[in-house]
């Protein structure tokens, strides 16, 4: 079962929040991602069962949105903005430096399951270009060198404070915890904090810390 008993109870709560169950589709997919580290085939089937729709319908939705991972994501998902205001401030160098340091391809995850690096479109923080996110929290004006320092800390499981830490911004301790919060369920349970992606032994590369 992709969803634990605890998660199933949360799923029912999410469904009850809307006049029509299907509105809970994105929250449930985030919940599956929190539990499984990605939107797994079994998770898709579970959401289909909970909502009374076909797996194809759930799959069609899951593949439409960029935040649903189709293979296990690292504990820390690093998203580099690639849209013009960030590109003009060198975000391609940021991506390049991160990939080189991690020894992975774009979209890949380190062999120890700690870090995934992806490029995304405009993150609505263009005054802080180049913008990098860790588990959807902003690290603004982060050039290639700062980005490498950041990822080296993350590979050691240390999370440097985000740009607005002094104002109260907090980086989620894992991408699974971030997904739980995105489901609309508030503070994630502690068990999700230390979640790493299951190793992918068939994948090449993946320098660890």
């Amino acid at each position: 079962m992709p969803l634990s008993q605890e998660a199933l109870e949360q799923a029912r709560k999410l469904i009850a929040r809307y006049p029509r169950p299907r509105s809970a589709m994105l929250p449930l997919l985030f919940l599956v991602q929190a539990e499984e580290g990605y939107v797994s085939p079994a998770g898709v089937a579970e959401v289909a069962r909970l909502l009374g729709v076909t797996r194809a319908e759930v799959g069609a939705v899951a593949t439409f949105y960029t935040m649903f991972h189709r293979r296990p994501a690292g504990r820390y998902v690093l998203s580099v903005c690639r849209t013009l205001p960030c590109r003009m401030r060198g975000s391609d160098e940021v991506t390049g430096a991160l990939l080189e340091r991690c020894g992975i391809e774009l979209g890949g995850t380190t062999a120890d399951g700690m870090v995934t690096v992806e490029e995304v479109e405009c993150l609505a923080a263009c005054d802080g270009a180049p913008v990098l996110q860790v588990n959807y929290e902003n690290y603004e004006r982060t050039g290639p060198q700062e980005a490498v320092h950041l990822v080296e800390a993350l590979l050691q499981d240390e999370v440097p404070p985000p740009t607005f830490a002094a104002d109260g911004a907090v980086t989620e301790p894992s991408s699974a915890a971030a997904s739980w919060r995105l489901a609309g369920l508030g503070d994630p349970p502690a068990r999700l904090s230390a979640r790493t992606a299951p190793g992918e032994p068939d994948r090449a590369g993946g320098a660890s810390g």
Partner: peptide
């Protein structure tokens, strides 16, 4: 609210 907005998400919730 857009998904990628971590800080704004916490604040609004």
């Amino acid at each position: 609210l857009r998904g990628e907005a971590g800080f704004a998400g916490r604040r609004v919730a």
